[in-house]
Computed example of a mutant assay.
Amino acid sequence: MQAATYDLEARHPGWPARLGPLKVAAGTVALRPIRLRDAGDWSRIRLRDQAHLEKWEPTAPGPWQDRNGFWSWPPQWLALRGLARRGQCLPFVITVDDEFAGQITIGNVIRASLRSAWVGYWVSSTAVAGGVATAAVALVVDHVFASGGLHRIEATVRPENDPSIRVLTKAGFRQEGLFQRYLDVAGGWRDHLCFAITAEETGPGLVAKLVTAGRAEHV
């Protein structure tokens, strides 16, 4: 039994897991693994928040309503869960006061001598202020450095996306450079800034730094 547990953890260290809670101005933030029954909340928020989300997300085929309808979630959940079980990503739901408020994913996990990945996230239009995204980023980065065995996390963001840039800088990421015409977003090839952080730069941890700065409290 112990050997089986070790083998399972070796395939996908750090997932599944529950992270937090952490209290910020907007409420109590926690992360949990994605679930099949998230379809209703996921679709409702995504359809309502099209104007809030579409301008920042990679262009995809088909209308927004079809790509974010209720029945679009099960295949996405299945694909993400499959990647997680192969150790290639760590997909989480962001909750605020136990309510679905967005997603945060550690993706493109590469191990061996690199031990790197990217972080991507979105939050409901009702949760864009009050420290929700910053808390989620801090929780997941601390987790993947401590339990996920990673060393470096990257994030890319359009230069016009001031709110997301503030999230990353408050969490402790540093800007490394500019990727020109990096992703097809909102129908065009858009420049993206590259931000990154390594395990050595986190000190006592990103959550601890938020708490020390008065931006969050342990619950």
Rank of each mutant, 00 (worst) to 15 (best):
L31Y: 03
A146V: 13
I106H: 03
R215N: 11
V93G: 03
D98Y: 00
R181W: 08
Q2A: 13
V144H: 00
K170T: 13
P33M: 02
L83C: 00
P21V: 03
K55R: 15
P159S: 14
E54M: 09
D66P: 00
V144S: 07
R18H: 05
A129L: 12
G187H: 10
F173H: 02
A101P: 10
A60I: 01
D97S: 07
V123I: 14
A84G: 00
L193A: 09
F92I: 02
A186N: 14
G69M: 03
A84P: 00
D142W: 06
F100G: 07
E201W: 09
H143Y: 02
V128M: 14
Q175C: 13
E154F: 06
A135N: 06
I104S: 05
G40L: 12
L78A: 08
R48D: 14
R67I: 00
V123K: 10
H218W: 10
G82Q: 01
L210N: 06
M1C: 04
V137K: 03
E154I: 01
R181N: 10
G107I: 02
F195Y: 15
F173G: 04
L83R: 02
V93W: 05
R215K: 13
E160F: 08
W64F: 07
V141N: 01
P91H: 08
W118P: 02
H192Q: 11
P61K: 01
R181M: 12
S164P: 14
R67S: 08
V96F: 09
A216W: 08
L8I: 11
V119N: 07
G14N: 05
R215G: 03
L114V: 00
E99K: 08
L90H: 04
W118T: 00
E176V: 04
T5M: 10
